[in-house]
Design a protein around this nucleic acid. Structure first.
Ligand SMILES: [Zn+2]
Ligand SMILES: [Zn+2]
Ligand SMILES: [Zn+2]
Ligand SMILES: [Zn+2]
Lengths: 143, 143
DNA sequence: CTACACCCTATACTTCGGTATAGGGTCAAG
DNA sequence: CTTGACCCTATACCGAAGTATAGGGTGTAG
């Protein structure tokens, strides 16, 4: 029975009003009721749905993935299995992303070390090997 | 003395011509010489610069970060220290990103496990606790 | 009545690293 | 001379998740 206006919901959930419009536009939430003058009135269910969205978003799911889950929910076919499949898929994606980033990190880190040791103990030829490795050119040079 | 046309450079480096135009537009590479009829003619230095860009991009630096380095290079102030600072900064950013993703992963994984064990051995009340945790609502429900 | 806070819609803009398209020019072979 | 491969510019578009702005309506307090 209690209904909140856009600004109140935004305040409560830490969103902007624009974000609420946006979620409505992309079909993540249904268009809420309106007051006679056209103001949105969000009921408890609307707010609960938004809370769910934010909770799951914080777990790292994209709005599209959340929308998929909510479609199942709306169709009353949101099962344990469906959730499990999606979360598992997401975990795998996260693992892949983590591995890729670690691979990059492990290529970058040695170069830093190399530069570091060169800075503390320059070799006689005056050129850091990491700098040379990266540029593939050597230090500065013209034409 | 040998100069390549756009398509040849693109072919050689595994880029599209559009990408070359794009790099030129954003100032990553200088506008190369032109033939009398207006065709781009990339010299050895141009190709070397592009190779550098691709090499460093493969290390995970953004085009903006690469541009910064190239500006130093163009100003002949590309030092070991400058490179080291940038790479170190990047490594730190990668570390942060990795940690964030791992935190997400570690929040998600237990939920998958919970659903998994519920699927193999449903509890009497017919509701998976992970499903309840996530939705904050329980299974399906209306108004 | 008027100021002000709040609300509405529609549209454009943001970042990033390009890709796609439209509409035209150049050049060598046949 | 025409065909076809190549080149040019300018512009729009992609995904993701919004943010910003313009231009207007509503509701209440003084
Ligand atoms: Zn996926
Ligand atoms: Zn160095
Ligand atoms: Zn940074
Ligand atoms: Zn479950």
């Amino acid at each position: 029975m209690n209904s909140l206006r856009t600004g109140e919901v935004a305040q409560k959930l830490g969103l902007s009003a624009q974000t609420l419009y946006f979620y409505e536009r992309i079909g993540l939430i249904p268009s809420p009721q309106r007051s006679p003058s056209g103001y949105r009135l969000f009921g408890d269910r609307d707010v609960a749905r938004l809370s769910f969205i934010l909770r799951v978003k914080a777990l790292g799911l994209s709005l599209d993935e959340i929308k998929e889950i909510l479609l199942l929910y709306d169709g009353e076919s949101l099962t344990c299995q469906a959730i499990r499949d999606r979360l598992q898929h997401k975990v795998q994606e996260l693992d892949q992303k983590i591995h890729r980033l670690q691979a990059l990190r492990n290529e970058l880190a040695p170069l830093v070390k190399e530069c570091q040791s060169f800075l503390s103990q320059p070799s006689p030829d005056g050129e850091c090997s990491a700098l040379r490795d990266i540029t593939g050119i050597g230090g500065n040079q013209d034409a």
